[in-house]
Design a protein around this nucleic acid. Structure first.
Length: 134
DNA sequence: GCCAACGTTGGC
DNA sequence: GCCAACGTTGGC
């Protein structure tokens, strides 16, 4: 069981949208490093859902409900998608500023590589985030 | 709106 | 195979 973080612009697709839909195909990733992470995901892995551009906070937890399959929106056939389901919203959103200020999170991939849209989260980081979010 | 980070493309 | 130019993402 592994932990991940995905980014989405809430204007485009928010955590509320995921809760409404019940599940969604996480496609459109066009970055090799991010795609590699998608390919590594297993059913049941838990995923932090982060709102970029607007909100700038982790707002909920999702889980992988279907492992990597070819991204139908990618004509080259190189990239993959997964399917995600909502688990629960965080008790309160955990902002980027709070995460940056937390020493336990200083090595987080998403903080070190701000443009990466899918990144791994270490168990210790996951625990710290759950604690901070109440 | 600007700019830093960084991945990708294409000329050589 | 290198590297400059360019495009995209995302924070500020």
């Amino acid at each position: 069981m592994a932990y991940w973080l995905v980014k989405s612009e809430p204007n485009t697709y928010s955590f509320e949208d995921l809760q409404r839909d019940g599940r969604t195909v996480w496609d459109g990733v066009r970055n090799n490093a991010a795609a590699l992470h998608l390919k590594t995901m297993k059913v049941g892995d838990e995923v932090l859902f982060y709102h970029s551009q607007e909100g700038l906070a982790v707002v909920g937890v999702a889980k992988v409900s279907k492992e990597a399959f070819p991204d139908a929106s990618d004509p080259s056939g190189r990239f993959v998608a997964v399917e995600l389901e909502p688990v629960r919203p965080l008790a309160r959103p955990l902002t980027l500023a709070e995460m940056k200020a937390e020493p336990a999170l200083s090595d987080m991939v998403m903080l070190r590589q701000s443009r990466l849209s899918v990144s791994p989260v270490k168990p210790g980081e996951w625990a710290a985030i759950q604690k901070m979010a109440g």
